[in-house]
Amino acid sequence: MAERPDPPPEWVDRIDATLSRLPQCRQARAWTGTSWKVGAATVAHVFGGEDQLIRLVVRAEPDEVMALQHLGPPYFKASWGANVVGLALDDDTDWDEIAELLTDSYCVQAPAHLAEQVPRPGGRLDA
């Protein structure tokens, strides 16, 4: 079996910079790579695959999952969980877009009383 590369530390730091500012969101070592959780719920997971690509998976609303999935690469619908979508990260990744996806993922996974505290992309508060 091929080795899975670790995500570059600077990419992990960029993801953490977005998620660590959200209420009760914490970084955790995953079975491979790094994940972020709120309570027991996984908000995001960044990891290297046996194909040497680095992927980020997040949670999204059903319509967002479908929209991203239909965009094609670098996006993909994960084979587990109805609300799990991912993308391959590379040197051309749009980190502003990643910050929006991470914030939305947190709001999908967090208890309502925490998600309500988070300004959503586009300037709206999650209701």
Rank of each mutant, 00 (worst) to 15 (best):
K77L: 10
E10F: 07
G81V: 13
T93F: 09
R14Y: 10
N83C: 05
C25Q: 07
P74H: 04
A99F: 00
W31C: 00
A40L: 08
I98D: 03
V108Q: 03
H113K: 15
W80F: 15
L68M: 14
P8N: 08
P111V: 03
Q27Y: 00
H113I: 10
R59Q: 13
R55D: 06
V38L: 02
A99V: 00
T32Q: 14
V65K: 08
T18E: 14
C107H: 01
I54D: 07
T18R: 11
A78P: 04
I54G: 06
V43G: 08
L68I: 02
P73I: 03
T93A: 12
Q52I: 02
A28K: 12
E100P: 01
I15M: 08
M66H: 11
D91R: 14
G33Y: 12
V46M: 10
A82D: 12
L102M: 10
V43R: 10
G33I: 05
Y75T: 05
L114D: 03
L87N: 04
L101C: 03
D92Q: 15
D63H: 11
H113F: 15
A60H: 04
C107L: 00
I98S: 00
L68N: 06
M66S: 14
Y106H: 03
Q24L: 11
N83A: 13
P23A: 06
